[in-house]
Design a protein around this nucleic acid. Structure first.
Length: 426
RNA sequence: GGAUGGGUGGCAGAGUGGUCGAUUGCACCGGUCUUGAAAACCGGCAGGGGUUCACGCCCCUCGUGGGUUCGAAUCCCACCCCAUCCGCCA
C-alpha cells in the first residue's frame, strides 16, 4: 500500500517503478481522485466548522434564555450541501483506497529490470554439485522406490497434489523441521511461534494476499482462510499496534502447514511433491526499524542459507527481477537448491523485504522515543526453509545407486541416529 | 448452538445529551533537586486528515456503519469483534 501523499510528491518515480513491474501508469488518475477527495472534504469541513460554531452559540443563547431560532434555521439550511459534499468525499476516498490496495510494491533501485525469472541475477553460489556414477533419480522415484512416498493413496484421500509420507520419510520431514527451528531459535535469535492456521480477511489484506489473490487460497465455510504461509499470521502479529522502538527488531519463526489452491499452476510440476496443495514450511519474519531493513534482509537470507550449508547441499542465491517479485516485496532473494534428479536448481526459499508496504496496510507502527508521531515498521519474511522441498533435496542429493538414501550428519540426531534410509527400514 | 456482559488515548480505567478529544493513574519526554541515580516536585504527552511559506486555524476518530438532535463517547438501529457461563467436544 502506498501513501497517496508520496505519490502526489513523486508521480514520476511512482509510475517509473510501476513500469518496471509491467504496470501501466496510475499516478495521474490517483492524484485526480485524491484532489477530488480533498476538495469535497474541505467543503464538507467548512460547513461542519460553521455548524459546530453555531451549535455552541445556540447553547450559549439558551443558557442566557435568548431566542436561538434564527441560528437553528441556519444550521438546518446547510444540511443538504454538507451531506452532498460528504458523499462525494466518501465515494472518492473509497475509490482511491480500492485502487491503492491493488497496486504492488515498487522494486528497490538495485533490482534488475525484467518481467520474469529469466531476468533474475545470480548473487552467489555455495557448495559443490555432486556427481554420480549412476543416473540420479528424481525424488518421487526415490521415495516410491523406498515404499515410503505414496501419491496414489494420497490421491484417494485428497486428490491430486497431495502426498502420504511414511516411516523414515515421515520422520525425515519432522526431523528437518525440528532442525531448522532449533537453529533459528537457538542461534539466530528468532522466537518460536505457534500461530493459527486460519485467519480473517483483514489479516490477508495486511500482508497483501487480498484483495487481489483470493483465488490462490482456500476459504473455510465460516468465512476464514487457510494460511498460504506463516508469513501471514506472523507479520500480522502486531497489526494495528504502536510499539516502542526498543522492542525492535522483532524476529519470529514458525513451522506451519501452508495451503495453496495452485489455481494458476495447472500442468506444472504435476509429478512429485514440488508443488502441493499442502506443505509445511519454517518461516522467518522480522519487524524492524526502517534503517535496518536492508541489513536485515541480508541477515535473514543468511539464516536460510545456513540450513543448506549444514545439510551440505549446493545452492545459489538469486536476486529477483522487478517483474518476478511477489506483490508486497521491494527486494527478494530466492535460494535455489541443486536437485540432481532434475539436473537443475529449484526454489527452496524466498526472502523478501516489503519496506513499509505491508505495515501501512496493517497499520503496524512504532513510536520514536522523544519524538512526536509514529512511523510504519518495515516487514520482512523468508522461508527457512520449505520443508517438503528440503526433503526432496536431501533425497536427490544423498541418493545412492542401490536406491537407499544417506542421512546428512546434521540430521542424524533428529533421526534417532539413523544413517541411511533403505527399503527394509520402513 | 443457547445466555449474559463488554468494546474509550501506549497501557489501566473514569465519563450516560452541551467548552469531552475526553478526569485520573501508570508508562514516556523535558526540567528542578542530586556528585550521579532513585524519590519528590513542576511541566509536557492520542491518532489521522484538510488548509497555510510559516505561526496557526479547522475537520474527523471513544469497535464499524446508519439514525434521532441545534448539539452524541453518552439515546436508537444494524453489523463486526471480544469475554464469561451453559451445551457439545479433541
Amino acid at each position: 500500500m502506498f501513501d497517496i501523499k508520496w505519490i502526489r510528491d513523486n508521480p514520476d518515480a511512482f509510475d517509473g517503478g510501476l513500469a518496471r513491474r509491467g504496470v501501466a501508469p496510475l499516478a495521474s488518475a490517483l492524484i485526480a481522485l485524491d484532489a477530488e477527495r480533498r476538495d469535497a472534504q474541505t467543503q464538507a469541513q467548512d460547513i461542519q466548522a460553521r455548524r459546530n460554531k453555531i451549535a455552541k452559540e445556540i447553547g450559549a443563547a439558551k443558557a442566557k434564555g435568548e431566542d436561538a431560532g434564527p441560528l437553528i434555521e441556519e444550521v438546518s439550511r446547510s444540511k443538504d450541501a454538507q451531506a452532498d459534499a460528504e458523499e462525494r468525499a466518501r465515494v472518492a476516498s473509497a475509490k482511491l483506497d480500492d485502487a491503492l490496495a491493488a497496486i504492488p510494491n515498487l522494486p528497490a533501485d538495485d533490482i534488475p529490470d525484467g518481467m520474469d525469472e529469466s531476468a533474475n541475477v545470480e548473487v552467489r553460489r555455495w557448495g559443490t554439485v555432486p556427481s554420480f556414477d549412476f543416473a540420479p533419480k528424481e525424488h518421487f522415484d526415490i521415495g516410491e522406490g523406498l515404499g515410503l512416498m505414496d501419491f496414489e493413496r494420497a490421491a484417494k484421500l485428497s486428490g491430486a497434489r497431495f502426498v502420504v509420507l511414511r516411516g523414515a520419510l515421515a520422520r525425515l520431514e519432522r526431523a528437518l523441521a525440528g532442525f531448522m527451528l532449533d537453529m533459528h531459535t537457538r542461534e539466530f535469535g528468532y522466537t518460536e511461534v505457534n500461530p493459527p492456521f486460519m485467519v480473517r480477511d483483514e489479516v490477508l489484506y495486511g500482508t497483501g494476499q487480498l484483495p487481489k489473490f483470493g483465488e490462490d487460497l482456500f476459504k473455510t465455510t465460516d468465512g476464514r482462510w487457510l494460511i498460504p504461509t506463516a508469513e501471514v499470521p506472523l507479520t500480522n502479529l502486531y497489526a494495528g499496534e504502536i510499539i516502542d522502538t526498543d522492542t525492535l527488531p522483532i524476529r519470529v519463526t514458525a513451522l506451519t502447514p501452508c495451503f495453496r489452491s495452485e489455481a494458476g499452476a495447472a500442468g506444472t510440476d504435476t509429478r512429485g511433491m514440488i508443488r502441493q496443495h499442502q506443505f509445511s514450511k519454517v518461516e522467518m519474519v522480522s519487524l524492524v526499524h526502517p534503517d535496518q531493513s536492508d541489513a536485515e534482509l541480508e541477515r535473514m537470507t543468511g539464516c536460510a542459507e545456513e540450513v543448506l550449508k549444514r545439510l551440505g547441499i549446493a545452492y545459489r542465491v538469486m536476486k529477483l527481477s522487478a517483474g518476478d517479485m511477489g506483490f508486497s516485496a521491494r527486494r527478494t532473494y530466492d535460494i535455489e537448491v541443486w536437485l540432481p534428479g532434475q539436473d537443475r536448481y529449484r526454489e527452496i526459499s524466498s526472502c523478501s523485504t516489503c519496506g513499509a508496504f505491508q505495515a501501512r496496510r496493517m497499520k503496524a507502527r512504532f513510536r520514536v522515543k522523544g519524538e512526536k508521531g509514529t512511523e510504519f515498521l518495515h516487514t520482512l519474511n523468508g522461508s527457512g526453509l520449505a520443508v517438503g522441498r528440503t526433503l526432496i533435496a536431501v533425497l536427490e542429493n544423498y541418493q545412492r545407486a542401490d536406491g537407499s538414501v544417506a542421512i546428512p550428519e546434521a540430521l542424524r540426531p533428529y533421526m534417532g541416529g539413523l544413517e541411511t534410509i533403505a527399503t527394509h527400514v520402513a
